[in-house]
Design a protein around this nucleic acid. Structure first.
Length: 499
RNA sequence: GCCGGCGUAGCUCAGUUGGUUAGAGCGCCUGAUUGUGGAUCAGGAGGUCAGUGGUUCGAGACCACUCGCUGGUACCA
């Protein structure tokens, strides 16, 4: 290097932090519209809205303490002035457990609430995975009956359809943790007398079963046995089960039959010897009956391979999945996974009160569902901008404001140009906003009591055929109207453009 | 966390065995057009070649490390 460069002071980088996103107009409008539809369904079923704080104490959130060794995982947490550990909520269920425990004397029983909003997870982001995302939940706290679980499944179906998912574009797969526990008893990795033993192996079994649809039977077999090495060379620890034990698990995951009744009968044969397993099968049978009565039975599949993570679920679990293919901008298939899920968690409030409080709920992954709706073209196009009233004569801003106000009073979205610059700048702005119409009134028009209104979309279409400079100057998409007819004429122009 | 691929202008990319002042298209700005976006033409701005260190007479290119993105995998309340 011959030249020595003078170092400039470093400026802050204008970047969205890693794992986060900025949502612009269209995204926000589409999400709000979708959430409003889901909320309407929840509300119609009798659930009340609840907005709890975005920050909780780490103690209330539960097991995820800040981990110095693995700062990339877990919650966003910090220590308050009084040294209490605080954290951003990582889901909407843990805060509900806290709210219920705190206010249970004043809340109706059962307490039915819905909630929606962002949650935060301090994890490594991945494709389609961010560190802030939206959830939209409904839960019933204080109802132990399977009817409450069946209601969740039915309501989830209604909510999905309300957002624009067609009845044949999704399925809800239902299983029961008790059945999973039953099969693990039969396989000899769960002893009801000593429930702590073999917990590690059970974790591996559950995770492995959860991956069945992605890895296939042979991958599952490897994970249940010695372990699995994937094509990248990475090794995943196996559960170390014997061939006989593996056969029990595989027989179970293969127990899905042509309909729910047959599946339940098959499961009864497999896990009926276990008390918990039998109870789980009976619950599944009841859910299937209730859902048949409530309507959406054909969208509901009893599927033994549904696991729903390792978390707090204690009974029925379910998962909604979109059944159509989704392609990304490069035409590749996207694996969307489940867009919603839920289940029964009877132990969550116990941490606070010592009492057993049964609860069941559903959670919709808002961003995933939006991706699905977008792929299906079921989201409204909100890109169109307002009518722009251009400013020819700066001294008469009040007159222009009056025009915009008249348009708004007539139900038309409108604004006066607030920037600086000539007519070219103003129309360029309107173009960038995807404005349908621009309004122009200069001294000329003013004297004659008229205004120019310009159909911007039509102009763009006509421009494709422009050949001479005179054509370009002709402004065929523009018309002169009487000032007092402004609102009616703009409305007519919008109607022509829209139709 | 583990394994791989990739980082050149706002975007998409080219850049010869290492060799002058790093290019193109699109977009942006200005003008042709002092009252008109979108067509056309002319001109212009815009780059710490991700960063740091090294090899070399000479590095955008080669080497090492770091960071970022990306594909898979693991974890996922």
């Amino acid at each position: 290097m011959a030249k020595t460069k003078i170092k400039k002071p470093r400026r802050p980088r204008a970047e969205t932090p890693r794992g986060f996103r900025d949502y612009f107009g269209q995204d926000v409008l589409q999400r709000n519209a979708m959430l409003a539809r889901v909320a309407e369904v929840y509300h119609a079923h009798g659930f009340d809205p609840l907005e709890s704080s975005a920050v909780e104490t780490v103690e209330a959130l539960g097991k995820f303490l800040p981990d110095v060794d693995r700062p990339n995982e877990g919650v966003f947490a910090w220590q308050d002035e009084d040294e209490t550990w605080m954290a951003l909520r990582y889901d909407l269920t843990a805060p509900l457990a806290r709210v219920y425990a705190q206010h249970r004397r004043d809340l109706p029983n059962p307490y039915r609430r819905y909630a929606m909003g962002p949650v935060w997870r301090n994890e490594k982001p991945g494709p389609g995975r961010y560190r802030q995302f939206y959830q939209c939940d409904a839960d019933t706290v204080g109802a132990g009956s399977v009817a409450a679980d069946a209601e969740m499944c039915a309501m989830l179906g209604s909510a999905l359809e309300a957002t624009g998912i067609a009845a044949d574009d999704y399925v809800i797969r239902v299983n029961n943790r008790k059945v999973l526990n039953g099969v693990m008893e039969v396989a000899g990795v769960l002893n009801p007398e000593d429930p702590e033993a073999d917990a590690h192996a059970r974790g591996i079994v559950l995770r492995a079963v959860d991956k069945l649809d992605r890895l296939g039977v042979s991958g599952l077999r490897d994970l249940l046995g010695a372990g699995r090495r994937d094509e990248s060379g990475d090794f995943t620890e196996g559960a170390g089960l014997s061939p006989d034990q593996i056969a029990v698990i595989l027989g179970f995951t293969d127990a899905r039959r042509e309909n729910g009744t047959a599946t339940c009968a098959a499961l009864r044969d497999l896990v009926g010897v276990s008390k918990a397993g039998l109870e789980g099968v009976q619950e599944l049978e009841t859910i299937a009956e209730l859902l048949t009565a409530q309507g959406p039975a054909e969208r509901i599949i009893i599927d033994p391979s549904v696991v729903r993570g390792l978390g707090y679920y204690t009974g029925p679990v379910f998962e909604a999945e979109l059944t159509f293919e989704i392609l990304d901008e490069k035409g590749r298939r996207i694996q969307l996974g489940s867009v919603a899920g839920g289940g029964r968690y009877d132990d969550l409030v116990t941490r606070f009160t010592g009492e057993k409080v049964p609860a069941t709920g559903v959670s919709i992954g808002v961003d995933r569902l939006l991706a699905g709706l977008r792929a299906k073209g079921r989201l409204a196009d909100n890109t169109q901008g307002p009518v722009v009233v251009t400013v020819m004569d700066r001294d008469r801003t009040a007159d222009y404001q009056a025009m915009a106000a008249e348009l708004r009073a007539g139900g038309i979205r409108a604004e006066v140009f607030m920037g600086g610059g000539n007519m070219a700048k103003q129309l360029k702005y309107a173009d960038q906003r995807v404005s349908p119409v621009a309004v122009i009134e200069g001294g000329n028009e003013r004297e004659r009591g008229v205004v120019q209104i310009k159909d911007l979309a039509l102009g763009a279409r006509l421009a494709a055929n422009i050949e001479t400079h005179d054509d370009w100057k002709a402004q065929p998409a523009q018309m002169e109207v009487v000032r007092s007819d402004l609102v009616a004429e703009v409305r007519a122009m919008l109607a022509r453009a829209g139709g």
